[in-house]
Amino acid sequence: MRIQDQQPLISLLGTSAVLLQAPAPLLFDTQQKIWGLAQQVEGWEAVLEVIPGMNNLMITYPTLPEDMAGLKAQLLDAWQAVEGIEKEGKVIDLPVIYGGPEYGPHMQDVVAHTGLSIAEIVRRHTAPLYPVYALGSHPGFCYLGDMDPSLATPRRQVPITDLAGGSVSIGGVQTGVSASQGPSGWNTIGRTKMQFFDVNKMPPALCKPGDYIRFCVEEVIQ
């Protein structure tokens, strides 16, 4: 069966939300369809908020519609018909200090797991233009796609309780930047200074889905 023929999974999140999960694997094309669907569903009756995730979409309601079978059919129809959105997002350059015990405390773990040198890790990490798929986790945090798979490093056995804001890390096949201090199970390889969230601005988050992040070398500490 081709991926396009597979139906997304639609499920309930209790009495306040519906979740639509597109078939695997994680793809940018699928994410563009998720953005397209999000835009449509925002206009539907009684919807509270529409939250894109990684190839999925959560729709929250003050109370769920009476006719759930109807809603499910409506969602499936919309998914079949929707066109992916080509967002003209902005590119955000993030200068990063890579490595060293203070800014990149787990660089050695990534070296050990990948077998690559620090210089090569930095080269491969700064090469792509990373699309922002969605926001989540904590205020202003971006889920990014397209990390070089050779950099993939498993999440840490024991999470860090107070990872600093601005930490650039790798968790499995994903990379990201923590927007504020908090717990994390990812491997931190560098630090950037950008402020990702300002509650006094609207929208409060620096990035939105469809934007791009490019990591640039400010310094590499061996």
């Binding site: 999140l13 979740l19 695997a24 959560m58 904590h138 889920y143």
Partner: peptide, 28 residues
Amino acid sequence: LSHGIVPGVIQIPPGGQPIIQLRDAQPT
């Protein structure tokens, strides 16, 4: 893959012990 969640979701991490996510939980 990471997705939106709501307070009340019962997640089961690999260890097999459930967690009920509540009001201060992450949104995903």
